[in-house]
């Protein structure tokens, strides 16, 4: 199995997709070989950011900790622990986080061992050994091993409160389905969806998918921004949080970190949508869900 890189780069960097692709050999994907670190670190581009935010060690420490803490658990459980902490440690703006080259760099040059540890399937396909999907190393924002966690944290946090992120990442179907939806770019919508998961109104994968389908479909005729108005985003407070990175202590391991104080989502807005989503969900015909519907009726 892939080990921690023997040579860690000091600073975060960018690895272009075209370059990432050539290192995604069968050996790397199956965890039998480590990426060629020296060659790889030669062809990266530096990040624009400066200071503590660009240091690799704090991120690598988090990876070591998560692999140790969840060594005996189902690997999926690690997501809820790592997502808020990765977000709080990196302190990236969305502008920076939308650069897929950063995520490819983390996956290949900093923590390929984590990607294999977390995403190696138990069985291979077509007679091949088990292999991590290449998109976990270099791929879409909701698929790549690290960017999916960062974006889940960014899109599901309630201002500085990472509580809803834990809920979202505690359910793989939320990460796999809801994270792809454009409707969660509206903060009250994201919070309302997570509330139904937190209340266990929806639990199984099938239910989460049904909720995603009905709320997404309703958004083609209803404008959630009007039904549940959000406050204007405090970009200044967010930028300040990013700038404070240099003086911030390491991310806490035992308690949840505190996120950027860019304003909580208005409670009335979440209430309005959560009620609405619950109704939509009850109306939805979920295949093979009759029993569950009956139980809901009894509550």
């Amino acid at each position: 199995m892939t080990d921690k890189p023997e040579h860690l780069p000091e600073r975060l960097a960018l690895l272009a997709d075209i370059n990432a692709a050539k290192f995604l050999s069968t050996g790397v994907l199956s965890g039998h070989e480590a990426p060629p670190y020296i060659a790889l670190n030669k062809i990266t581009d530096p990040v624009d950011a400066k200071g503590v935010r660009t240091e690799v060690v704090p991120i690598r420490d988090l990876i070591d900790d998560v692999m140790h803490l969840f060594r005996d658990d189902a690997r999926t459980k690690a997501d809820a622990w790592l997502a808020p902490r990765l977000h709080a440690a990196l302190r990236l703006s969305r502008r920076e986080a939308s650069d897929s080259r950063l995520w490819s760099f983390l996956a290949l040059a900093v923590a390929p061992d984590y990607v294999v540890w977390r995403h190696l399937p138990t069985k291979g396909r077509n007679g091949l050994p088990p292999m991590v999907a290449a998109s976990r190393f270099s791929g879409a924002h909701y698929t790549q091993a690290f960017s999916r966690l960062w974006w889940a944290a960014e899109l599901f946090r309630d201002g500085s409160d990472y509580g809803p992120v834990q809920v979202a990442c505690g359910n793989q179907d939320v990460l796999n389905t809801v994270l792809r939806l454009d409707i969660i770019d509206h903060r009250p919508t994201a919070q309302a969806l997570i509330r139904l998961v937190a209340k266990e109104t929806v639990t199984t994968g099938r239910e989460v998918n049904a909720l995603a389908v009905v709320t997404n479909a309703a958004a083609s005729t209803l404008m959630y921004d009007v039904l549940a108005e959000d406050e204007e985003w405090d970009g200044g407070a967010f930028d300040a949080w990013v700038e404070e990175a240099d003086s911030a202590p390491p991310v806490p391991r035992k308690v949840l970190p505190t996120g950027p104080d860019d304003g909580p989502v208005p409670l009335a807005a979440i209430d309005a949508l959560a009620g609405r989503f619950e109704e939509l969900f009850k109306d939805a015909r979920v295949r093979g869900r009759t029993e569950v519907t009956d139980q809901l009726g009894d509550d």
Binding site: R94, A97, S98, E154, L155, D182, I184, M223, D225, V226
Partner: peptide, 15 residues
Amino acid sequence: VIAVLTEKATNSRTT
């Protein structure tokens, strides 16, 4: 009437 600014790459939405 709502003005909406969106960008796919950053999942950003401002209204």
